[in-house]
Structure formats: structure tokens, C-alpha cells
Design a protein around this nucleic acid. Structure first.
Length: 670
DNA sequence: CTAGGGTTAG
């Protein structure tokens, strides 16, 4: 199922695209931008906090000859700031390299306060008007995230060079202000300045960050070609990363292949691109290729691969890469460790996730959230609550993700009181509820059957209810078979988000299960008229060497005869112990018998039948599904787990279902 | 003196 894209096709695509880049060069230069630059006042930095540094100490007679003191990291938060003291005492002659070294350390360690002090010192020195020095100061402010001060310096500099412009552009692009980076870049072009490779890689990062399309990025690409920087590994990697962010992996690969020299960053950008698209197999293949080509994977590579494998739930491959981390002596630092925890949890092994969690060198809020998420997705509601309490006891400040996860867990596990308590707790931790929290809270009330309270909550909530909020109510109405309220909720959704097929299907289901088949048919018709389509359901089963995919009514599989035979056999056995097909999940005019027949070829049932004939007896079966498990399949799987004496783990879009001995871990709450 | 790649939810 994982097909490689033809490289020649990619090449053709980009060659044509290149023509467009050249065509657009002119447009960009003449592009009109609105500018709103702050008026310049004074740049005198505030150094009152550390005025002691500037006090002369006449009693000191220490003569310093060794500038290596600058490397001393035991004082002044590692910036070596104490040497300024020596300069003040006249024990050390200030020169360019001292200031440069100090500023470099401030920049690297993001010490804004210290940077201000050095700045103040330089203002009193002979280097006050030195452009290179001013650039370094500007850069220090920019990299410390203090863009306002960097901007002031920039505006006040009478003479600017490329480095000045680039330092500020990169400052903006590294500090989440891509728009400002792009505006500044355009202004630079209009002044006739020629960007260098540093400018281009910075502005490419900015063009990939906030924009909705690749229009600007393609124009920058044109500049790279025009000025001959596209071969540069920095520019090239930024370029391919930019395309990867716009989901154009073919273009990204083409640029990569064309690079004269590649490095880890180029590889990592590709792996991350596949990870963002949930292409576990491709990410892993790229990772292996990287190894084969003799590149050493970095933390970036590992965390991207784990993210990708988490999204496909590929436990075995994940273990292989984990082994690679161990073999290469890599430590489980935050980023890598957190993705690894997440990978194990999402691949169905909460035990391994916990083992990794316990071995983490440092545990931040994301590490804890990953564990919570893992428990919640496996339906371990009480465990989620326990982990959350443990997290609080460990003094970790919960964030919005934490609360969302805990609320979801409570909702799924039917922990009504706990959920309400935690919702109230958010404010005490200074976490403002967002849309998703309201959705989940409605879900919590709704699942518990408190439909009227859920409706009251929606009407009284401080933000305007969105389609998703009404959707939670609609889902609850489906569960509790409340036709009138369901229809009311659906009306709101159709208005707010007319292009989603979900609510139409849900509404049709509600009517169908209430026996109102005409209304159900009308809802289906509305769905068709609004042009929305139901996503075709499919399921995957992983065997030792391959991934097998099934869609409903599937007859493409080479072993289809055996698969259907196997399912008929299971179906008979589970009917004997109480399985009753629930045809309300089938939407059609067909009669009861036909609808039951349709049910029996749902993709997850085919996947299960296939797994039973192609995996060793007694082994756990893993199935993945692209949409929620249907109610009838859920019931059938419960019985089947008892009949075949196998544990069946199904991962759908929302969560995991562990079927064992006639029961499901979700407690029929999903 | 200035540059590119990574985490958790719904």
C-alpha cells in the first residue's frame, strides 16, 4: 500500500514549476507592502539592575593578562560578564574580541539582561559606532526574543549592511513573526540590496511558517536560483523544508536529490515532512536511507521518525528505531523521549510507554501529557486520573493539553464527577478553557445522559458555540436516541459548517435507529445534495512482512474466499452466544436481510477474519481503522474475542479498543 | 557580525 512516487514525475513537475519561479521574480520586487515602523526614540538600555558591575573599585589592584577568563562560566550566569568589572577597574584593555565573545555568550544562552549590560558598556567605548559591533548587539537582542529593541537599534543605525538586515530578518523568523520577516525582506529588495544565503534561508523559514500557500516561498525560490544560492546546503535544506511544509513532498525530494552536498538537516527536513503527513513507512525508509548513506541521525531525526511511526502505530518498526537510539548511545532527552513514549502508547503498548517514561532523563509537561494521552486513548480513564494526580504532586504545571486529555479520559470512562471537578480546576491552574475544552465538557455531560444540562451549558458558555460544540451534543443524542434535540443540534451545525459530512450521517443514524426511515433517507439525501461525501471506511492489519488494507465489500484481496469463509464461521459461532446484528448502522432503503448482509462485510470484520487466518493462534491481533468503529462491529468483536480466545486491539481515529474475553476496554463508551 | 530540521490534544 505504500507506493513510492516516481522521481521522473517529480522532476517534470518541478522543472515546470521552475519556469514559474523565474516568471515571478519581477513581481516580488515591485510588490507593494504596507509599512508601520515604530518611530525611533532612544536606545539607552536599562542597566540599573546590575549597576554594581559598573562601580569602580579603587582598592583592587588585580592586573589581568589572560583573556581566557572570558571562558569562565562560574560567574554571571555563564556569560563571563565579570570581565567588564576588570575593564572598569582599568585592569583590562577592552577590545573587539572581548565584546564579541561576551555578546556571543549572551546570544547563545539567551541572556537578555546581560546583553543589555554589555550593550551599555560598548556605548561608552570606542566601538560605539562600529557597524559590525552594532550588528552583533542587534543580533543578541533579536535572538533573545527582544525584537522591539532589535528593531529600535535597526531603525537608528545610520549605515546598515547585509548582516544588519539579515540579523533582524532571522530574528523575526526565529521568534514566530514570519510576517515581519517577509515585510522586511521585501523592503530590502526594494532598496536594491542583494540577499545572501543567510538572508534567503531565514526568509524561507518564514515563508514556510505562517503562510496559507507557497506563493511567496516560490518567489523566494526564484531569488535563490537567480543569485545562484540554490546549491547551498543551508538554502537548499530550507527550500525543501518549505515545500515539505506545504505538503509537496515530490518537490522536496527533487530539490534534495539535486543538492550537491547534503547534511543531517536536509535529511531531517525530509523525514519531518513525511512525519507531518503521517507517512510512517516513508519516514522510516528515508531514515534507513540516511543511515545507509553514512549520516549520523540526530535528535531531530529520531523524534520525527517516532512521530511518524506513532501516527501509523507501527510498533515493530518503532522498536527497531528505539534499538538504534540505544545502540548509538543516545540519551533519552526530552524531545526524543517524549515522542518515544507517544510512539509506544499509540502503537498499543502502554507498558512500554511507561517503561520509557520512567527512564527519561528529564520529564517535562509534554512527557506527562504523552503518558496521559496514552492512558486516555486506551480507555484507561481511572489510570489517567491517577497519572494526573501524580503529575500535580510532582509539581508539574498542567497546560491546556493536559486538561483536554484528562477531560476526554473522564468523558470516555464515564467519570462524570471527576470530569466536572477537573473542569473547575482549570481556572485554579490559570488555564483558560478553549473551544476544545468546551466540546469535551459537552461530551462529558452528553455521554452521561445529561442532555438538558449539556444544552444549558452550551447556551451559557462564554464563547460562541462552534460546530464542534454542537457536534458533541449531536453525538450524545445519537447515543441516547434523542431525536428532537439531535435534529436541533444538527441544524446549528449545518449552518456553521455546511461542508462536513459527519453531522448528516449522525442525524440519519439517529432517525434510522428510531425507526424513522423516511427521515433518515431525507438526511442522507441532504448530505448528497450538499455535496459532502462519506469517507470510505478502511481497516489495516499488519502481518510480519506487509500491511493489508480492507475496504467494505472488499473483493480485491487474493485470499478473499478464505476471508469470507472465515467470517461466516465466526459469525455463526458468535450468534450462538448472543450476538445480534444491529442493522441501524446501515443507511439504505434495503430490507432488513440485505442490511444485515451489508454489515457483515464491514472492513474491520474482513480485517479480523484475515488476521485470524494469517497470524499465529493465541497472538494479539492489531487492527487500525480510519474512522470510528461501527456499533455492530464493536459488538461482534466483543463476542469474537471470546470465541477465538484472542485479544483484539482496534485503533480508530479517536482511541483504542482492547477486546478480551467478551469485553471491551472502552466499556462501550466511545 | 547574519542561516536551515524535532514533541503532547481534538
Amino acid at each position: 500500500m505504500f507506493k513510492y512516487c516516481g522521481k521522473s514525475a517529480a522532476a517534470f513537475c518541478l522543472l515546470n514549476a521552475n519556469k514559474r519561479y523565474f516568471g515571478l521574480v519581477h513581481v516580488s520586487v515591485s510588490m507593494q507592502w504596507q509599512f508601520q515602523f515604530s518611530t525611533t526614540t532612544s536606545t539607552a538600555p536599562n542597566f540599573t539592575e546590575s549597576s554594581d558591575i559598573f562601580e569602580l573599585n579603587p582598592t583592587s589592584s588585580c592586573i589581568i593578562q589572560d583573556k581566557d577568563l572570558l571562558r569562565d562560566s562560574q560567574h554571571d550566569s555563564g556569560t563571563g560578564l565579570h570581565v567588564l568589572d576588570l575593564i572598569n577597574r582599568g585592569s583590562l584593555e577592552p577590545d573587539r574580541s572581548i565584546y564579541n565573545t561576551l555578546l556571543k555568550k549572551c546570544t547563545h544562552l539567551k541572556k537578555l539582561k546581560e546583553a543589555r549590560i554589555v550593550h551599555a558598556h560598548i556605548l561608552g567605548s570606542a566601538f560605539k559606532n562600529d557597524i559590525a559591533m552594532q550588528n552583533t548587539i542587534l543580533n543578541a537582542y533579536a535572538k533573545c526574543g527582544c525584537l522591539d529593541e532589535a528593531r529600535k537599534l535597526f531603525d537608528e543605525m545610520p549605515v546598515k549592511d547585509m548582516v544588519t538586515w539579515t540579523a533582524l530578518i532571522s530574528g523575526y523568523s526565529q521568534n514566530d513573526q514570519p510576517e515581519n520577516a517577509i515585510i522586511l525582506f521585501s523592503q530590502m529588495l526594494r532598496l536594491g540590496l542583494k540577499p545572501n544565503q543567510f538572508t534567503l534561508s531565514s526568509v524561507l523559514k518564514a515563508s514556510g511558517a505562517g503562510a496559507t500557500d507557497d506563493k511567496f516561498g516560490r518567489q523566494v525560490h526564484a531569488f535563490c536560483l537567480k543569485y545562484g544560492y540554490d546549491w547551498n546546503v543551508y538554502v537548499g535544506s530550507s527550500l525543501l523544508d518549505m515545500y515539505a511544509r506545504f505538503d509537496q513532498m515530490d518537490d522536496a525530494w527533487f530539490l534534495f536529490t539535486a543538492l550537491e552536498s547534503k547534511n543531517e538537516v536536509s535529511w531531517n527536513a525530509l523525514i519531518a515532512g513525511h512525519a507531518r503527513k503521517s507517512e510512517g513507512e516513508k519516514a522510516l525508509r528515508t531514515f534507513s536511507e540516511m543511515l545507509r548513506e553514512g549520516f549520523e541521525p540526530t535528535h531531530f531525526s529520531y523524534s520525527s521518525v517516532f512521530t511518524a511511526l506513532a501516527s501509523t502505530g507501527s510498533l515493530e518498526q518503532g522498536k527497531w528505531v528505539h534499538a538504534h537510539v540505544i545502540k548509538s548511545g543516545g540519551q533519552l532527552v526530552a524531545f526524543v523521549g517524549n515522542t518515544l513514549v507517544d510512539m509506544y502508547a499509540k502503537s498499543g503498548s502502554i507498558e512500554d510507554a511507561e517503561k520509557v517514561f520512567n527512564r527519561l532523563l528529564k520529564r517535562d509537561v509534554v512527557s506527562w501529557n504523552s503518558m496521559l494521552t496514552g492512558c486516555a486513548q486506551h480507555g484507561l480513564g481511572k489510570a489517567t486520573v491517577r497519572w494526573f494526580e501524580k503529575m500535580l504532586r510532582n509539581g508539574i504545571a498542567p497546560n491546556q493539553v493536559t486538561f483536554l486529555c484528562v477531560l476526554t479520559a473522564c468523558s470516555h470512562a464515564g467519570l462524570l464527577d471527576e470530569g466536572q471537578g477537573y473542569f473547575a480546576l482549570m481556572k485554579k491552574h490559570g488555564v483558560e478553557p478553549e473551544e476544545a475544552h468546551y466540546v469535551t465538557f459537552v461530551d462529558l455531560l452528553g455521554r452521561a445522559g445529561l442532555l438538558d444540562r449539556a444544552l444549558k451549558f452550551i447556551r451559557e458558555m462564554p464563547i460562541e458555540p462552534t460546530a464542534a460544540v454542537w457536534g458533541a451534543l449531536l453525538g450524545a443524542c445519537r447515543m441516547h436516541k434523542n431525536v428532537e434535540l439531535g435534529a436541533y443540534a444538527a441544524e446549528h451545525i449545518f449552518e456553521l459548517d455546511p461542508h462536513d459530512s459527519g453531522p448528516h450521517i449522525l442525524l440519519a443514524n439517529i432517525y434510522a435507529s428510531a425507526g424513522r426511515l423516511n427521515d433518515a433517507a431525507r438526511a442522507r439525501k441532504m448530505m448528497k445534495e450538499s455535496g459532502v461525501k462519506k469517507e470510505p471506511a478502511c481497516s489495516w492489519v499488519e502481518t510480519k512482512n506487509a500491511v493489508h488494507m480492507f475496504v467494505a465489500n472488499d473483493d480485491a484481496h487474493p485470499q478473499r474466499a478464505m476471508i469470507h469463509k472465515k467470517w461466516r464461521e465466526i459469525s455463526e459461532k458468535i450468534k450462538q452466544i448472543g450476538y445480534v446484528p444491529d442493522s441501524s448502522h446501515v443507511l439504505s432503503y434495503a430490507d432488513q436481510q440485505e442490511r444485515e448482509a451489508k454489515l457483515q462485510v464491514h472492513s474491520e470484520k474482513l480485517a479480523l477474519a484475515f488476521a485470524l487466518i494469517s497470524t499465529p493462534p493465541g497472538s494479539t491481533i492489531h487492527i487500525k481503522k480510519n474512522i470510528r468503529v461501527c456499533g455492530d462491529c464493536h459488538s461482534a468483536f466483543k463476542f469474537a474475542s471470546k470465541v477465538v480466545e484472542r485479544e483484539i486491539i482496534v485503533r480508530d481515529t479517536n482511541r483504542f479498543h482492547h477486546f478480551r474475553d467478551g469485553f471491551c476496554s472502552c466499556g462501550d463508551y466511545w
